[in-house]
Design a protein around this nucleic acid. Structure first.
Lengths: 245, 245
DNA sequence: CGGGACATTGATTAAGATCAATTTAAGTGG
DNA sequence: CCACTTAAATTGATCTTAATCAATGTCCCG
C-alpha cells in the first residue's frame, strides 16, 4: 500500500516520527480521542502510540476491530491465512499507511499484520475515529480514498499474479518497492528489503527457490545487484519494462 | 463481489427490478438526486436507470467518476488492462453490487465494467451520492463496508491465484459462484455461467484450454456436470473441499 | 444454412515446483 | 572475542503442471 500523501500533515513527512510529532499531526484530535482538533499532546498521547517489535502482531485474524493503526515508521507484512492453512502475503505496507481497513466489512480482522522490524504505530480507536468521520466529512472522504487505494493496489497485484511470469512479477515487485521508497524520500535505486525471500515468495505466488533464482538472473543481466537483503537497481528502465510498468 | 444484504430494502430482493420498484428502494432519494428521502418516483426516475446491453461498457478505464452504479439485474465483468496490454478480470459482480468504487481513489475509473448480458443499473450521481453520505452517516458506513467487502473479496482471489493449482482455483471459483447464486435466491447446484471460458481463464490466471480441461476432469470425477455455459454441481462438498473453502 | 465465435481435445514444450545439499550470516552463550 | 547454533539464502538436478501450438467440434445468429 502506498502512502496517501494527503493524509499526514506535510511537515510530518520530513522527519521520523518522534513523541513531539503529535502537535503537527492532522489526526491528533482523532488519535487522542478528543473532539476538538489541534489539541497539544497530553497524557493520552502515550497510550495512543505503540512500539511493535519485529515479529509481533499488530492485530490478528479474528480479532475484533477496536482500532485502526497508522504506521508511522518501520514496515509490516499483511498475511491472510485460509482455513486450510494456505497463506498469502497481501501487502507490505510502509510508513504512512493506515492498517486494518479490511476489518470494516464485518467488524473483525481478516488478516494478520506483523512487524518486519521494530515499528511505530499510532493507535486510532475505531469508534472515536468513525465519530470523527461523522463530524468531519473530509476525514470520511480520506478513508474512502484510502480504501479505494487498497482496492486498486490489490488489483495491480492481481494482475501481476494472473498475467506475469516469475521474472516479470519479481521485476514488478522491485519497481513497486522502488517507487514507494522514492515516495517516502529514500533512494529508489538502493534500499534494504525488510522481508525474507519466503515472504516475497508468498506475496508473488511462487517458491523461495524461484525468487532466489530470479534475483540471480536479474543480477546476471546487470539489472540489479543484490546481496542478501541489500538491493541496488542498476538499470531502472529495463526493470520497469520487464515488470510491465 | 457479493451482494451487501443490508443495502437494498429487503422487499426489493424478492422480485426483479421494475420501474415501479423505486418506491421501495432505500436509495431512491440518492438515486433521484433529491435531498429528502422517501420521495415517490418522478420523471427523474427514467433518467436514473439505464439498460446496458450485452457487451456494452458501463464505464471504462480513464473515465471521469461521475456516477456509481447499482447493478439491479444481469451480470458484469470488471476488467483491468495495464499499459502493456495485460488483461485481468478482477471480478464478476451480480445483482446487488455497487460498481465503480475503484474510481474513488483518484476520481477516475481504473477498470472497465462490461455487461455479460443485458443488465439494468441504477445510476447514482457521485456528488449527490456523497452529499447524501455527508448527511446520512449510515449511508457513509454502508459505503465503507462495501469497499471493505471488495478488499476482502480481492484478498480471497489473491489467495486463489497465489496458492492454488488450476484445479483448486476452478473449484474455488465454482463454489464462489454457487454461494453467490444461493445468496441471491437461486439454486446453488444448477446455474448458467454468463461469462466465456476466456473470461474465466483471465479471472483465474490460466489459459482457456486449462479451464476446459479442468472442467472436463471435474466432470469425469463426477463432481460437476457441465455443458457449455450450463453447470450442475453434483458433489458440492467435494468441490468445496477441493477449492479449500 | 452458412459463418463465426466459442469450446473442446490432443501433442509437445517450457516454466516453475519439488527434492536435496551447501553456504552464509546473524545471533548467543561461554 | 570466538566457537557454536540456527534461520535464511543459494544452487543444482529432476519432475510436474500448465502453457503453447494445432486441429476439430458445436452452437448461435443473421
Amino acid at each position: 500500500m502506498e502512502t496517501i500523501s494527503a493524509f499526514p500533515h506535510p511537515a510530518a513527512r520530513q522527519r521520523a516520527a518522534a513523541p513531539g510529532d503529535c502537535d503537527i499531526c492532522l489526526l491528533s484530535h482523532v488519535c487522542h480521542s478528543v473532539p476538538d482538533a489541534g489539541s497539544l499532546p497530553t497524557a493520552a498521547t502515550l497510550r495512543a502510540r505503540r512500539i511493535v517489535h519485529q515479529g509481533d502482531a499488530i492485530y490478528r485474524t479474528g480479532d475484533t476491530l477496536r482500532n485502526l493503526y497508522w504506521l508511522r515508521s518501520g514496515s509490516v507484512k499483511i498475511r491472510a491465512t485460509n482455513p486450510f492453512g494456505l497463506e498469502q502475503i497481501i501487502a507490505f505496507p510502509v510508513a504512512g499507511t493506515i492498517l486494518g481497513l479490511d476489518a470494516i466489512e464485518a467488524g473483525t480482522h481478516t488478516s494478520d499484520a506483523i512487524a518486519l522490524e521494530d515499528s511505530l504505530v499510532c493507535i486510532l480507536p475505531f469508534p472515536e475515529f468513525m465519530g470523527n468521520c461523522r463530524r468531519d466529512f473530509t476525514a470520511a472522504q480520506l478513508i474512502n480514498q484510502m480504501m479505494a487505494h487498497d482496492i486498486n493496489e490489490l488489483g495491480r497485484l492481481l494482475m501481476s499474479l494472473g498475467c506475469m511470469t516469475a521474472e516479470e512479477r519479481v521485476a514488478d515487485f522491485l519497481m513497486g518497492m522502488s517507487e514507494r521508497m522514492a515516495a517516502n524520500g529514500y533512494s529508489p535505486r538502493e534500499f534494504v528489503l525488510k522481508m525474507t525471500r519466503e515472504d516475497i515468495a508468498k506475496h508473488l505466488g511462487m517458491t523461495v527457490e524461484t525468487v532466489c533464482r530470479t534475483l540471480a538472473r536479474l543480477q546476471a543481466a546487470a539489472l540489479i545487484r543484490v546481496n542478501r537483503r541489500r538491493l541496488e537497481i542498476h538499470n531502472i528502465e529495463a526493470l520497469r519494462n520487464m515488470g510491465h510498468r
